[in-house]
């Protein structure tokens, strides 16, 4: 028999070990991508057009395309998500309708990315082809926007709920109306949380592959006027293309390095902005 003191110590060791293992998994993945990526990444890799079917030159169109797609996604999801959150938090008591909205948001969040891809294909590529022009920045960006909408709604909701009741009551006590309270008290003090949500949505949208895989071009393509309705490349889909077609694993790692850098920088800046604003908004 193992006595209870010994098993206590053993289990403590097990828990420490599991946390260390998970930390090392992250560093293994990040470290490998950085080591492999840094070999091919330089200024011209980022700023040049690709040559010879992405084997030489840079990956500029993929970076530009990713930003276009994500911009469309955010333009759709952020206003809509924040307004939804304001409605849920400020205007509605918990009832059947809010629970329907909440179940929808949770379910939408759980929909697999490839199913969004199918949906975008069917809706934008074929059904609304005359309007969207098929596989365009508009189609891909909106599909991504649908996908990140739940993330934005949830983080905005959390941000709005953290506004102290005392501040709202203070505003009402001074004779402010509900709309004044929302626009002057609730929204300004939840801005840091909302910005965090926006940046999280940015990172998530930039890293998605499956929803846009039917919507982007694989040959080097720079968006042209009218930008919204022209084709583009994306980093994620190019990584897949270069890997699955065995064109160049080295350059796929270069793109992965750029993609991870974009996501890491955005996550880190979200944290900084959040801290900075949280300190400065509450005078």
């Amino acid at each position: 028999m193992i006595n209870s003191k010994t098993s206590d110590k053993v289990m403590k060791g097990v828990f420490w070990f599991s946390a260390l293992l998970i930390i090392s998994i992250l560093f293994l993945i990040l470290g490998y991508v950085f080591v492999e990526g840094i070999r091919v990444v330089n200024l011209s890799f980022i700023s040049d057009m690709p040559k010879n079917n992405w084997r030489e030159g840079g990956i500029y169109p993929a970076i530009v395309g990713t930003f276009y797609l994500v911009a469309v996604a955010l333009l759709f999801a952020v206003p809509l998500g924040v307004l939804t959150a304001i409605y849920l938090v400020e205007f509605r008591k918990e009832d059947n309708l809010t629970s329907i909205i909440r179940i929808s948001v949770d379910s939408l969040n759980a929909v697999p990315s490839i199913v969004f891809g199918l949906f975008g294909l069917s809706l934008f590529f074929y059904y609304l082809k005359d309007f969207t022009g098929g596989p365009t920045i508009f189609s891909g960006g909106l599909t991504l926007g649908f996908m990140i909408l739940p993330t934005v709604i949830r983080t905005a909701e959390v941000a709005l709920r953290t506004v102290p009741l005392s501040e709202k009551l203070g505003s009402y006590a001074l004779g402010a109306t509900k709309l004044q309270t929302i626009s002057r008290i609730v929204i300004p003090s939840s801005i840091p949380g909302i910005i965090t949500g926006v940046i999280l949505g940015f990172g998530r949208a930039a890293g998605e592959t499956a929803p846009i895989i039917f919507m982007v071009a694989l040959n080097p393509t720079m968006p042209e006027f009218p930008y919204l309705f022209s084709q583009c490349n994306a980093l994620t889909t190019q990584i897949y293309y270069l890997t699955s077609e065995a064109i160049s694993i080295e350059r796929a790692f270069g793109m992965a390095f750029v993609l991870i850098s974009i996501i890491l920088i955005s996550n880190y800046s979200a944290r900084l902005i959040n801290k900075y604003l949280a300190r400065n908004i509450r005078r």
Partner: peptide, 23 residues
């Protein structure tokens, strides 16, 4: 540990795939 878990959640799936394929 907490930021590590957030980062693990933030790594794009295509990069997991690339890492998985190569390693």
């Amino acid at each position: 540990t907490r930021p590590v878990i957030e980062l693990l959640a933030g790594i794009p799936s295509i990069i997991y795939g690339l890492f998985g394929l190569v390693i």
